[in-house]
Write a protein that binds this DNA or RNA. Structure first.
Length: 609
RNA sequence: GGCCCGGUAGCUCAGCUGGAUAGAGCACCAGCCUUCUAAGCUGGGGGUCAUUGGUUCGAAUCCAAUCCGGGUCACCA
């Protein structure tokens, strides 16, 4: 019992210790009924001997014994009755358990090339992760990148945890914003197209959006000079009136307006696709607001019938959420037209019906926390089955040292520019390090992309999503320390050793079948295996807490432990064949775990750098 | 003002379902390449975990109040 079996379902060592401890207590103190929650297992601090520590204080009151006595009995029982441990010691209320070296050796033999290590078998839960969801009037900026990387990573992490995941993208392709770009293009474009201008379509359309706002500002200033109030001027500016007229024409289905709209949107999509492709980002389902913006009205009608919603004298429809600790919220204007949240109600239901979703995750910035809360509560109140599955994966916005990014004011860090900068930084550093030998030009290009994009993604994913970020464009993103580069480098070092040993990245099961452990495992070796064993726990946590950043922290730790191990021990020229085999298994598994973890974040690891 | 989120080393952040002397990275200082990739390793300095009180054998972690920063409370999206 209590030995890791070769199986897809892995019981972590911590779980095994917990169960064994529970059993020990039940056996030694049959009178007590013990809640397993009071058993806390921690990794033993480096200054003490042992691998995992059982905290004894919680038992003191329960068992009415001194911690040392309890510890001695539990420790003794665990040593005798399981084959997990080789030793134990008690230091001031902490029971430090030393796990047998054979456990780690068996663990390595069983999992060193198990590419599914930590991955849960696919279940039947369906989850949609909606992310990116851009407007079609401007190119993507740095803030979108955080959203996109987070959404992609979350989707992949959930897949690895056995969920059936649909990656969704709800494109905001209609409304006043796109009409603004259209007006400016009609006025000042002279028939400009991405082809003619040699410009990415999203950038071209974005330029006209900025142009619109420049002109708009000018017109407001002019009107104010003539003595008009600011608020009035904002409404009366001719270019704004044109944009609004255009929106009305669009809604009326005007053919010319629609075809201009389609053309300009198609430019934007082509531009987005280039960026998504370069970033390795994909989607399973695109939703367009031009198709969904009228949804939701019938849900509101039903709600009215049921008496869940109420109508005011002017004909507007409202929901009372004061019982839920929220406010009254408008759902339909007096003229019967819908507001933003109305279509969100409809879209939530649409998604649910399209895929029979168990859960629907929205990756949206934290400025919409209230909105998302309201959305969920309304659906709940209306008795819509999609309500319970709604989860807002809220993340802090990316700001500049000077404050928020404003696309209207052109103070945004453009996503494509940022990508280019990171890739060229990767090139500079590679050249500086003199590591450009032995590649074809294509391979070098590929390598710079891998390093540059890796650094960018890692930078945006390594922080807890809910924390806001301040990005200083003056200071470029580092390629040392807590970075993707560090992890990539550890991986490349491992691959280099494997090449020298004529081993593939994943040697098959025959390679180490003659391995037998007879020598003690060193501290540096142990630290690394211990960390590798924890991967399933980390992966599960990333899903449960909706926080992929834990994979960054974990991978960095593993790479760090590998580097220390690598510095201390020779692998190719190990002391003897046994050590060599042990260490080869360790590095094979290290590289595999790093690859798997980073793969979930969309970060590639080169075999050479 | 109501509600929500954040405040940990000079800077960027882990740790937060309570457990041993609070950890990384950057920056700074001192070492380590005739040996598997030095994009690395080892060591050092640097802290009133915003403040105060409470719960507890034990609090950065839980509770309350206060201070600071941000978000939100639109017939905008």
């Amino acid at each position: 019992m209590y030995f890791c079996a070769k199986d897809t379902y892995i019981m972590t060592i911590v779980t095994q210790i917990k169960l064994a401890t529970e059993e020990a207590i039940k056996h030694i103190f049959p009178e007590t009924d013990l809640e397993s929650a009071v058993i806390t297992i921690n990794q033993t601090k480096p200054e003490f001997t042992g691998d995992y520590t059982i905290v004894l204080f919680p038992f003191v009151k329960l068992l009415k014994q001194k911690p040392d006595i309890i510890g001695k009995q539990i420790g003794g029982y665990l040593l005798d009755k399981t084959n997990l441990f080789s030793e134990f010691s008690i230091v001031s209320g902490f029971l430090n358990m030393g796990v047998r070296d054979e456990y780690w050796a068996t663990f390595l033999l069983n999992h060193y090339n198990n590419t599914q290590y930590g991955v849960m078998p696919k279940g039947d839960k369906r989850v949609m992760v909606e992310y990116s969801s851009p407007n079609t009037n401007k190119p993507l900026h740095f803030g979108h990148l955080r959203n996109i990387f987070l959404g992609f990573a979350m989707a992949e992490v959930l897949k690895a945890n056995g969920k059936q995941v649909i990656k969704g993208n709800l494109i905001n392709d209609r409304g006043i914003h796109i009409c603004k770009s259209m007006v400016a293009w009609m006025r000042y474009g002279n028939g400009a197209t991405p082809e003619k201008n040699g410009q990415k379509g999203d950038h071209l359309v974005g330029d006209y959006y900025v142009k619109f706002n420049d002109i708009y500002k000018g017109e407001i200033a002019e009107l104010k000079e003539k003595g008009m109030e600011e608020a009035q001027a904002e409404k009366e500016a001719p270019i704004m009136k044109e944009a609004q007229a255009l929106l009305r024409q669009w809604e009326a289905g005007d053919k010319e307006v629609r075809s201009l709209w389609e053309m300009m949107n198609s430019w934007v999509y082509a531009g987005f696709d280039i960026t998504y492709k370069r970033l390795g980002i994909d989607f399973d389902k695109m939703y367009y607001e031009s198709n969904t913006y009228l949804l939701g009205k019938n849900i509101v009608e039903e709600g009215l019938q049921k008496g869940v919603l109420y109508k005011k004298e002017d004909g507007s429809v409202w929901v009372d959420l004061t019982e839920e600790g929220l406010d009254h919220k408008l759902l339909l204007r007096g003229d019967g037209t819908s507001v933003y949240i109305t279509q969100d109600l409809g879209t939530a239901k649409l998604k649910y019906n399209d895929y029979k979703l168990d859960q629907s995750i929205y990756v949206i910035a934290d400025e919409q926390n209230y909105h998302m809360q309201v959305l969920k509560q309304i659906l709940k109140k209306l008795g819509e089955p999609c309500a319970d599955g709604i989860y807002h994966l809220s993340y802090g916005m990316v700001e500049l040292p000077t404050g928020k990014m404003k696309s209207r004011e052109g103070t945004v860090v453009d996503a494509d520019d940022m990508i280019d900068e990171m890739v060229s930084l990767a090139q500079q550093q590679t050249e500086q390090a003199g590591k450009t030998e032995g590649y074809t030009p294509q391979e070098l290009t590929q390598l710079y992309e891998t390093i540059g994009l890796g650094a960018l993604k890692f930078y945006l994913l390594r922080v807890d999503p809910k924390k806001k970020m301040i990005f200083n464009p003056q200071e470029s993103i580092d390629l040392h320390g807590f970075t993707a580069t560090f992890i990539q480098y550890a991986h490349a070092r491992i691959c280099s050793i494997l090449r020298k040993e004529n081993l593939p990245l994943l040697p098959d099961n025959k390679h180490f079948q003659s391995f037998k452990l007879s020598l003690p495992i060193s501290k540096a070796e142990k630290n690394l295996v211990l960390a590798l064993e924890q991967y399933p726990f980390i992966l599960e946590g990333a899903a449960d807490e909706y926080n992929p950043s834990s994979l960054c922290n974990y991978s960095f730790l593993v790479a760090q432990l590998f580097n220390t191990f690598y510095d201390e021990h020779s692998i190719g020229k190990a002391e003897n064949e046994e050590k060599k085999q042990l260490r080869l298994m360790m590095i094979v598994m290290t590289a595999m775990v790093l690859r798997n973890a980073m793969h979930l974040l969309g970060i590639r690891l080169p075999e050479k750098m």
